[in-house]
């Protein structure tokens, strides 16, 4: 099962480190990363595989949201299905 992690906020050091640390700790594999920085505004989208995830989805979600608050970024994780449903025919 795959999910999309979206990280949005003001650019700073250590964003990818902080997010990927949580993912690695919970056995979530990163399959793809895209990111841009425009006018100091950082946007990153990660496609992650949760097949071997060691915790419940909600635990991971809370951990990501907490780290998001710590580093002042908005971090969301959503099942990939929603995006595929809305944007493919």
């Amino acid at each position: 099962m795959r999910a999309v992690v979206t990280v949005i906020g003001k650019d700073r050091t250590g964003i990818i480190y902080n997010v990927s640390k949580i993912l690695a700790e919970n056995e979530v594999n990163i399959e793809d990363i895209s990111q841009t920085v425009m006018h100091d505004f950082f946007t990153m989208i990660m496609l992650v595989d949760m097949s071997n995830m060691s915790v419940d989805f909600n635990v991971l979600k809370n951990a990501l949201e907490t780290v998001g608050e710590d580093i002042g970024m908005s971090i969301r994780i959503q099942h990939e299905d929603l995006f595929n449903a809305m944007h493919t025919i």
Binding site: R2, V4, T6, I8, D32, S34, T36, T43, I45, L47, R76, E80, L82, F83, N84, M86, H87, T88
Partner: peptide, 12 residues
């Protein structure tokens, strides 16, 4: 995976 802009559109 849905495109970058599609993901952002949904989030927005």
């Amino acid at each position: 995976m849905a495109m970058f802009k599609d993901v952002l559109e949904t989030v927005r």
